[in-house]
Amino acid sequence: MSVAVETVGLTKRYGDLVAVQELNLRLNTGEVFGMLGPNGSGKTTTILMLLGLTEPTAGTARVLGWDPTRQPLQVKRRVGYLPDSVGFYDELTAWENLRYTAALNGLPSTEANRRIGEVLERMGLQDVAHRKVGTFSRGMKQRLGLADVLLKQPQVAILDEPTLGLDPEAALEFLALIRSLKRDGLTVLLASHLLHQVQSVCDRVGLFHRGRMVLEGTVDELRERVLGGAYRIHVQARGAEVERALREVPGVVRVTRTDGDTYRVEARVDCRAEIARRVVASGELLALSVDRPGLDEVYARYFQQLEAESGGAA
């Protein structure tokens, strides 16, 4: 599998503040990678270094084999970037804005017009193509931003906070568009602090905290590693032996009694059938449901554990 983006020891300092620290990132061609983390954790800074828009203090980056610091034009020819809170020239129409992007990319006029028509249609903006962008809603601007990214037919798309400021429905639509990029074979790097929103589109995620990537893997792997179990099963049952029975189910990592006769079971596999069988054998089963904890919880739990460990060590 070929590598689209790779960084080794990438570091950025602003004075005393370390915005990105010793980042080793690796994106395979065709995957959707999510850089997730709270405000100020260094996501945007990383992206700017990958595009050659900010010089790294230390370390190296390679994007499609090019060095963004020395060969930014080569990188930017092949990489589309959707900045957080993307802006357009309000007094120009959507079409005119894209014409400028096409010209900056050196596209000849006929090719530019063809592609602009294509990307606007794909983003569902063909009816407003000749309206001034100043009249666009936030969601329309965001879709125009994605059209702007696709115009240069990039191999890699970097999207910073793509769902920020969108209503839930528009956000879902936008995530579907991102998924369609993956189908086209693009490598997608997206940064967001809305963990629950983007986890569904990412093949792999990296969790950022104060400039470091503290966890990295598929969402399932992270759930497993941090929460112990990737499934959370809620059981409501009566009977003295229920708790012991639950603990003995294969795959169960932890059982906690939340109140009265409800239990929370964390398990590595979806073992609802086995739980049902054993609870019925030892007591009375009232209800059974499963949910999969989101990345928010993984993230929160990870830092609880970290604090607990450092507290214990101190």
């Binding site: 700017l48 034009l73 993307v86 992007t101």
Partner: peptide, 14 residues
Amino acid sequence: SRRTLSRVLSQPIY
């Protein structure tokens, strides 16, 4: 202020 700078500079120009 129009937030166009990073979008323009992410095109292949210096």
